[in-house]
Amino acid sequence: MRFHLEIDLSALPQPHDAELGRILRYWAGNLSHYDLSVETSESIRDSAYEEVGSWRVTA
């Protein structure tokens, strides 16, 4: 299995590093709520709830 995280940095509000850090902390903390043994995916949203990327688990 592989975990893929894709974020469009140009879609993030300024400063990019603060928002990217928030996204990474949020998803790292929430991964325990997902069954990572099956293929799955979900969109990633910034603090303004705008879609800025996605993550997925693939075989």
Rank of each mutant, 00 (worst) to 15 (best):
S10L: 13
L12E: 00
G21K: 04
L31G: 11
N30K: 15
S54F: 15
Y49T: 09
R2M: 07
Y26V: 10
P13F: 02
L31I: 13
S47Q: 11
D46P: 01
E39V: 06
L12Y: 02
E50Q: 15
L5I: 08
R25K: 07
P15T: 04
G21C: 01
E50I: 14
R45F: 07
H33W: 09
A18N: 10
V38N: 05
Q14W: 06
S37L: 08
P15R: 04
I7A: 01
E51Y: 07
L5C: 05
Q14Y: 09
L12N: 01
S10H: 14
E42I: 12
I7G: 01
N30D: 14
D35L: 03
Y49Q: 15
G21F: 03
H33S: 13
G21N: 08
L9Q: 11
R2G: 09
Y26N: 12
E19H: 07
L12R: 04
D46Q: 02
S47H: 11
F3G: 11
H33P: 05
E51V: 15
L36F: 01
W27T: 07
R2Q: 10
S37R: 10
Q14A: 11
S54N: 12
V57M: 00
H4D: 11
T40N: 12
A48T: 08
R56T: 04
Y26I: 07
W55K: 09
D17L: 06
L36P: 06
A59G: 11
F3A: 12
I23C: 06
T40H: 11
L36Y: 00
D35Y: 02
A11D: 03
S37P: 04
R2H: 03
L5M: 07
A28M: 10
R22C: 08
Y26A: 13
T58E: 10
Y49V: 08
S54G: 15
S43V: 13
Y49A: 13
M1E: 09
T58W: 00
W27C: 10
F3W: 00
E19K: 02
W55L: 10
R25D: 06
D17A: 08
Y26S: 14
S32V: 13
S54T: 13
L9F: 11
S41V: 09
Y34R: 13
D35K: 06
G21A: 05
T58L: 05
R2N: 13
S43R: 04
A59W: 01
T40F: 09
G21P: 00
L24K: 10
V38M: 07
S32L: 10
E51N: 12
Y26D: 14
L12G: 03
E6Y: 10
A11R: 02
T40L: 15
S43K: 05
E42M: 13
R22S: 12
L5H: 01
Y49F: 12
E50F: 12
G29H: 05
L5T: 05
E50M: 14
R56F: 02
L5V: 08
H33R: 15
L24P: 01
G29A: 08
V57L: 00
Y26W: 02
M1P: 09
I23P: 03
Y49H: 14
N30V: 09
I23D: 06
H16G: 04
M1N: 09
I44T: 07
G21T: 06
N30F: 06
R45M: 06
E50K: 15
Y34L: 14
D17H: 10
V57D: 02
E42G: 15
F3C: 11
L31V: 12
I7V: 08
I7T: 03
V57Q: 01
